[in-house]
């Protein structure tokens, strides 16, 4: 009777097999982690510069409400400008809507209604463009002294083109964390930033559509085109 003996025969590549398997698993896991972290990342908002503030993420309560009202008012102001200057002769000076004009159009946040009271009864002042200097070519509506604690101030700037002034034809909205501020010394972006103002950036429906559908969203017009049209509209209004 023979005795069976057990002999363990190791495959030639046994030394590396486990190592290779572990390496392959590690590579797969690392790839998945990288994919989820980088490719799978879905930024919810456009990145902001230091001198900007998000209406969606940062502003709250009355300040967010005032901003959203201003955001629609910026579309109405050029229309009202058209209305009030319709009979102005071409060689005369066109004027920008006064606060009374805006209130007569029932336009928030300028209208003194209960919503205005609830949002801090912010005091608005209109600064018409000056003929010379840094304030040339900028109409501004300044809102300050809200009654809520920690309420900031607002500035709606209608930039437009006049001879020799490099100003962009857009309406921008700025926010200052201070409750009381005086009239800015400059209507230009850099000057406003130096004086503590931050441009408010909305999270717009266009950005949300882009977030949901990506760049593939088949809109009839894009936000950039809208901006271009707004620029042209203001150029048309102020090109005199």
């Amino acid at each position: 009777m023979t005795t069976a003996s057990l002999q363990l025969v190791r495959p030639a590549g046994a030394r590396y097999e486990g190592l290779l398997l572990a390496t392959a698993a590690a590579v797969i896991v690392a790839t998945l982690v990288l994919y989820v972290r980088e490719l799978g990342r879905h930024e919810s908002h456009e990145p902001l510069y230091d001198w900007q503030v998000s209406a969606f993420d940062t502003l709250t309560g009355p300040d967010q409400a005032i901003y959203n009202a201003l955001f629609t008012a910026k579309d109405d102001i050029p229309y009202i400008y058209d209305d009030i200057n319709i009979d102005t002769p071409d060689n005369a000076v066109f004027r920008w809507p006064s606060l009374k004009d805006l209130q007569d159009s029932e336009l928030a946040p300028f209208l003194h209604d209960r919503s205005w009271e609830q949002n801090g009864s912010v005091k608005w002042t209109l600064y018409e463009p000056l003929a010379k200097g840094e304030m040339q070519g900028s109409t501004m509506y300044l809102g300050t002294d809200g009654t809520h604690p920690q309420q900031g101030s607002f500035l709606l700037v209608v930039g437009h083109t006049h001879a020799g002034v490099q100003n962009k034809n857009v309406i921008s909205i700025w926010w200052n964390a201070k409750n009381h501020v005086v009239m800015p010394q400059s209507g230009f972006r850099d000057g406003l930033i130096l004086q503590g103002w931050r441009e408010v950036v909305p999270h717009s429906g266009a950005q949300e559509v882009k977030r949901i559908f990506g760049d593939d969203s088949a809109s009839s017009t894009s936000t950039e085109e809208d901006q271009k049209q707004a620029d042209q509209a203001i150029q048309g209004l102020t090109g005199n």
Partner: peptide, 27 residues
């Protein structure tokens, strides 16, 4: 890809859902 769409909210400044759990900012 064929039908033109008008996204009505393109120019709306959106706000987060009020009172979302954990203060999450949801459109």
């Amino acid at each position: 890809k064929k039908l033109k769409l008008i996204y009505a909210n393109d120019g709306v400044s959106l706000i987060p859902v009020a009172g979302a759990p954990n203060g999450e900012k949801v459109v």
